[in-house]
Write a protein that binds this DNA or RNA. Structure first.
Lengths: 121, 121
DNA sequence: CACTCACTTAAACGATTAAACAATTATTTA
DNA sequence: TAAATAATTGTTTAATCGTTTAAGTGAGTG
């Protein structure tokens, strides 16, 4: 990006856009977060946990998947700090995490649904 | 979801969440849109085009990728109506599309960057 | 009319990812 | 302590995704 020039000069400031702004790492981090909800089952689980707290087998029943599959997705979401868990007896209860990323994603998903003409929860 | 019961009754309303709200198809559609920016190079291209309009080889130079690779990503983004294009002579100019989805994604990405402590454009 | 440049398309390869199954860990209860 | 249940982990298989290479289309130029 330094002193390079664009192949064509159309009077744009295209190269300047990336100067002194987001680092490459930032794009990767942001893309990683979006990839968490780029899978419909994971998005469904996240949305569910935005509105309730429940254990693995109940979540599995709600999204109609096996426990191991749900557990796997839950781990992915938890590693990204989008959901949190608490242990109570034999069960582990999951719900949305209290982070700004989770809050943003929840808002973004709701607005996306709204744009696409879906009823809101 | 109809008259099923959860394996465990913890007094939650987990199954109710999915009743009469988003359809399964809605989750898939929303996930598809998020998957568009779940790739860092595509996110980078989208962000770039949110702030400028330029031709393929200039975009390719800015993100340091080959023209075919960029062209491929541009088509994906355009099919999803996140970006638009206009032809001028030999060149094709791309920029962000004037849709609510694009607007939402742009806002979401900016906020994501802000949360993660990045400078804004 | 041929040449060059800009872009697109197609095919192939490598890498990532999800789902299904089996096995293991951990906790409660009898 | 043994049995039962909940959840996690690891593995395998299949599919998806992104990139690259090479060929092809089309517009401008000498």
């Amino acid at each position: 990006m330094e002193n390079k020039k664009l192949p064509h000069d159309h009077g744009t400031h295209t190269l300047e856009i990336f100067k002194g702004t987001y680092e490459n790492r930032s794009f990767e981090d942001a893309a990683d977060i979006f990839s968490l909800v780029s899978d419909s089952t994971r998005l469904k689980i996240f949305c569910l946990l935005c509105h309730t707290e429940d254990c693995v087998i109940n979540i599995a029943a709600a999204v109609q998947m096996s426990s191991p599959a749900v557990s796997h997705h839950l781990r992915v979401l938890k590693n990204a700090r989008l959901i949190s868990s608490r242990k109570a007896g034999k069960e582990v209860y999951y719900t949305v995490a209290d982070t700004r990323e989770a809050e943003l994603l929840h808002a973004a998903v709701d607005k996306m649904m709204e744009i696409r003409g879906c009823d809101t929860l």
